[in-house]
């Protein structure tokens, strides 16, 4: 569903992402972890067509993001780390705007909006302007807008930040359902417990380079994900690469 091949992105002299390759198959939930400034957001933004990259290739469901970005964007949904939405719109106007962009029929959008707004407890606030929303409410709205067109691939940057425990639980349930229905999810997080509990696969990035990736059980073995992550953070990336190759 998402294939990243030798992705390299530089900002001036700094290599934010260095020769990173990942393959996320349909039905997989892939967590992407790393320290602040490791290159997670750059990788994610490159996958969603928000950033140009210097080298490599990204395929969404077999379509190159470079060659046909619009077709790729039809298949995916993106939730950024900070939900900066259109503050001048009400929640419902924003959802309708997104539904129009994705060509969702009146009936289908009404059903989806009703289902997800009820699920996240946002229905009574939909007529309010987004400018009056809290961070968590904006995050919920961003999640609903991402789910409204039933994307094949859901890419999220720190999706649990700002969500209350109930909303976080519901999001995890929904993520699992999407993967069970044949979709794929790629998301970054600093909450290692969540990644450990719900993900099939994991990738750890350090200073722009992929340190390790693969099945969760293989990566962490008998240890906790936290201890593996901290151990890898302390060691140099060369060691990590050897481990990955092994």
């Amino acid at each position: 569903m998402l294939k990243i091949l030798n992705l390299t992105k530089t900002y001036g002299d700094k290599r934010a992402v260095d020769n990173l390759s990942l393959h996320i198959k349909a039905g997989e939930m892939y967590a992407f972890i790393g320290h602040n400034g490791a290159g997670k957001t750059t990788t994610i933004k490159s996958c969603t067509g928000l950033l140009n990259f210097d080298n490599g290739e990204i395929y969404i469901d077999g379509v190159s993001i470079k060659d046909d970005p619009i077709e790729c964007k039809r298949k995916l949904a993106y939730i950024p780390d900070n939900p900066d939405l259109y503050e001048f719109m009400s929640g419902i106007k924003y959802l309708n705007f997104i539904a129009d962009i994705y060509g969702i029929s009146t009936q289908e959008r009404n059903e989806k909006i009703s289902k997800y707004a009820d699920m996240f407890g946002l229905t009574s606030d939909l007529a309010q302007n987004i400018s009056s929303y809290s961070h968590g409410m904006k995050q919920k709205l961003a999640i609903i807008s991402a789910l409204i067109h039933s994307p094949k691939l859901l890419i999220m940057d720190e999706p649990f930040v700002g969500l209350d425990p109930r909303a976080a639980f519901l999001l995890k349930e929904e993520m699992r359902r999407i993967c069970d229905d044949g979709g794929a999810i790629f998301f970054s997080t600093h909450v290692l417990d969540v990644a450990e509990k719900i993900c099939d696969n994991i990738a750890i990035i350090k200073d722009g380079r992929l340190v390790i990736s693969g099945k969760m059980s293989h990566v962490k073995g008998d240890s906790s994900l936290e201890s593996v992550f901290l151990e890898l953070e302390d060691k140099d990336s060369a060691f990590g690469k050897e481990w990955d190759n092994a």
Binding site: Y86, F88, I92, N96, F97, I101, G103, R109, N110, A127
Partner: peptide
Amino acid sequence: AKIEYKGNTEKAGGVYSSLLKKEIRRFFSS
């Protein structure tokens, strides 16, 4: 006073008209 949400009454629209409506709404919101 909180504005009560009374269900989604808007109908599906085209991409271009939706973008135009968004721009007009932004203008009149500020």
